[in-house]
């Protein structure tokens, strides 16, 4: 079993965690109170939620243990869910598109040398071989669709939700991969 050694959480994160926790408990208590048929069923939830917020804001370190447990669980969940998301992505998006074919060429006749242009400095702002509107935008959520359109890879828009989901679920602290993998990066 993997052992996670977490860094001390930042105060702001503990505050955020206490806030979310308080709201969740407040809503849960409210729902329970309503189910129990209480007349002022909103009150217990609000009072408890407010008390928890005050406590969490005043003494955030009190929630640290719970925060660590939650984070650890989230990491396990992320790892577990990531595998499923990747399988779905590969089988639902990539494999069907693959049936249409790939631009990866094989035959080359007498020579495998093919002519190529030297890229214009105008493309240096772009992460792709072409310059196009939006190509130099910093966040890939914006620049990725522009690339997919410009590069003729519109189908790759179908990968975007998976990319975002994987980015959220992946908690690996650093890149780790076999020394024998050579081409993929």
């Amino acid at each position: 079993m993997a052992v996670f050694i977490l860094p001390p959480p930042r105060r702001a994160r503990l505050h955020a965690f206490a806030l979310v926790q308080s709201v969740c408990v407040g809503v849960l208590v409210t729902l329970l109170a309503r189910a129990a048929g209480m007349r002022y069923y909103v009150l217990p939830g609000i009072i408890l939620g407010l008390l928890m917020i005050l406590y969490g804001m005043g003494r955030p370190q009190a929630t640290e243990r719970l925060y660590r447990l939650w984070t650890r669980w989230a990491e396990y969940y992320g790892r577990w869910a990531k595998g499923y998301v990747l399988r779905i992505c590969y089988n639902v998006v990539l494999t069907p598109v693959a049936s249409i074919g790939s631009r990866m060429t094989g035959e080359g006749g007498d020579s495998m040398w093919v002519p190529r242009p030297t890229l214009s400095p105008l493309t240096y702002g772009s992460q792709y071989d072409l310059a196009y509107p939006g190509c130099s935008l910093r966040h890939f959520v914006i620049s990725y669709p522009a690339w997919a359109y410009k590069s003729g890879n519109l189908w790759a828009l179908g990968l975007l939700p998976f990319l975002l989901l994987i980015a959220a679920l992946d908690h690996e602290k650093k890149e780790s991969y076999s020394g024998h993998i050579y081409t993929l990066f």
Binding site: D170, I181, L184
Partner: peptide
């Protein structure tokens, strides 16, 4: 990378599982 997977799918899942998160993150 994507064209490579398209050329070899449905093979390539094990490689994809490592490469895709690195690209996403």
């Amino acid at each position: 990378l994507l064209e490579t997977y398209l050329a070899f799918a449905p093979e390539g899942m094990e490689s994809f599982q490592i490469a895709f998160p690195l690209w996403a993150k």
